[in-house]
Design a protein around this nucleic acid. Structure first.
Length: 422
RNA sequence: GUGGACGUAGCUCAGUCGGUAGAGCUCCGGGUUGUGAUCCCGGCGGUCGUGGGUUCGAGCCCCAUCGUCCACCCCA
């Protein structure tokens, strides 16, 4: 049987409703903070990501869907959104002497082994703020996160972790010190960490291996390498978080996988999703705009993992009401199909927001009512000889034991409008 | 890329010691005229993931392969 390729999944009608709720909620909150939507291509030049995300990262080394275009150019299905967003704003001159606060949403692609909460095509909502260097913007981004979780009713499952990486110079100095410390102890590290020692030593801090953890206990600490400005930035940040009542824990092991981060990094994590804990992650990336050809521009942002957020929403709220229609029009004689379709059009015009489905394909009334019931409709309308003769279809409540009535169109509209509270 | 578990009807699953497959749900038809959800009766539906092997005989044992899930790595 033909089936979707690994890591690519279909979001079927039952789930799509939940996706729309989650995505609309995030969008509404971003708009309320005056972030502006941006739509970006799924395909970018491969170079954008090798330069933007970083040559040594796992994403670039083994996870990109890259191909050669017909004219020989290297192009890549975007593995994340920030690089493309920066590219677009630089390309159109929107970062020139001005600030921008934007968001975007859509699928990203990474070639990884799928598991719970991780797919090869996955969905993010990203928000980015440019031209603003202070910790107030960092806090604003975290505040947006808190509103997301509150609005979706999942705030009790999500907590904030943060850290600071300082400036690129900070990272370089710390990295050198860490390597100098670990190199003689190489034999005591697990295999993965030994490999990372050469390539991306900061990631060793994340290791879950007990032996490696023991070695790390006496390793140099990044905070000791922070310069005065970075310390002040972070202190201001945590001060504002305290003021706003946003709970957080400082996690010195939080390093993040992408090369472009500086200063603040943060993650909203959950324990409710198995091994994939990060629901939203982001931070400051003051060097990226310049790296991608723009003027030096401070920037910060985050990405929400929609797939994971949808799973959380499901864990909290369970199954959603599955009604596909509100009103189902039954057609008792084939000759009345046209009447039924006209009736439905009048109802749709008079009842905005109502979902009205007309039976198609004929069949007995018994089966038509069965369909009406199955699609979740609250009401059925019957169109038979008598109803057409009187121009008064019968309105039947499928969810309450009420007498059914023959009503003219205006009467049906009035009854339906009055009868449905929400 | 690595490890573990699992692939039987559209769905959820049984299938004993190896003897050429079952249930529930769904779907379709019926229970006399134009009334659904419940109930009763009947029916459709399977290359047991795929390909080899062992055997008189394989859903069951062996090998390979594909797929799914979970975990590692890493990440949203």
């Amino acid at each position: 049987m033909l089936q979707s390729i690994r890591g690519m999944r279909d979001i079927l009608p039952g789930d799509a409703r939940r996706w729309r709720i989650v995505e609309d909620t995030l969008r509404r909150i971003l708009e309320s903070a005056a972030y502006e939507e941006l739509q970006l291509p799924l395909l970018e030049s491969t170079e954008l990501f090798t330069r933007g995300v970083g040559e040594g990262t796992d994403i670039v080394e083994k996870e990109m869907y890259s191909l050669t275009d017909r004219d020989g150019d290297g192009i890549t299905l975007r593995p994340e959104g920030t690089a493309g967003c920066v590219r677009a704003l630089v390309q159109h001159g929107l970062l020139f002497n001005q600030t921008q606060r934007v968001y975007y949403t859509g699928p990203m692609f990474r070639y990884e082994r799928p598991q719970k909460g991780r797919y090869r095509q996955f969905y993010q909502v990203g928000a980015e703020a440019f031209g603003l260097a202070g910790p107030d913007v960092d806090v604003e981004l975290m505040l947006l996160g808190r509103r997301f979780w509150q609005a979706l009713g999942v705030e009790h499952l999500v907590r904030l972790e943060l850290n600071t990486l300082g400036t690129p110079a900070t990272r370089a100095a710390f990295r050198a010190a860490l390597v100098a410390y670990l190199e003689p102890l190489r034999e005591r590290l697990d295999e993965d960490s030994r490999r990372r020692l050469d390539r991306n030593p900061l990631r060793i801090l994340d290791s879950k291996d007990p032996g490696t953890r023991a070695v790390l206990a006496r390793a140099p600490q990044l905070p000791d390498f922070l310069d005065a400005d970075s310390r002040r930035h972070f202190a201001n940040l945590t001060g504002m978080l305290d003021e706003l009542g946003i709970a957080y824990t400082v996690n010195p092991a939080l390093v993040r996988g992408l090369d472009y981060y500086t200063q603040t990094v943060f993650e909203w994590v959950t324990d409710a999703l198995g091994a994939q804990g990060a629901v939203c992650a982001g931070g400051r990336y003051d060097g990226l705009v310049e790296r991608l050809g723009g003027k030096p521009t401070p920037a910060a942002g985050f990405a929400v993992g929609l797939d994971r957020l949808v799973l959380l929403h499901e864990a909290v709220h369970g199954a959603l009401d599955g009604a596909a229609a509100d009103v189902y029009v039954c057609v008792l004689e084939p000759g009345h199909q046209g009447y039924a379709l006209r009736l439905a059009e009048k109802l749709r015009a008079g009842l905005p927001g109502f979902r009205i489905r007309v039976h198609a394909g004929g069949g007995k009334l018994k089966n038509q009512l069965k369909r009406a019931d199955q699609c979740g409709a609250r009401h059925a309308l019957l169109v038979g000889d008598a109803e057409v003769a009187d121009d008064a279809p019968v309105l039947k409540d499928l969810r309450a034991d009420l007498p059914q009535r023959a009503l003219a169109v205006d009467g049906i509209i009035a009854a339906l409008r009055a009868g449905v509270p929400d």
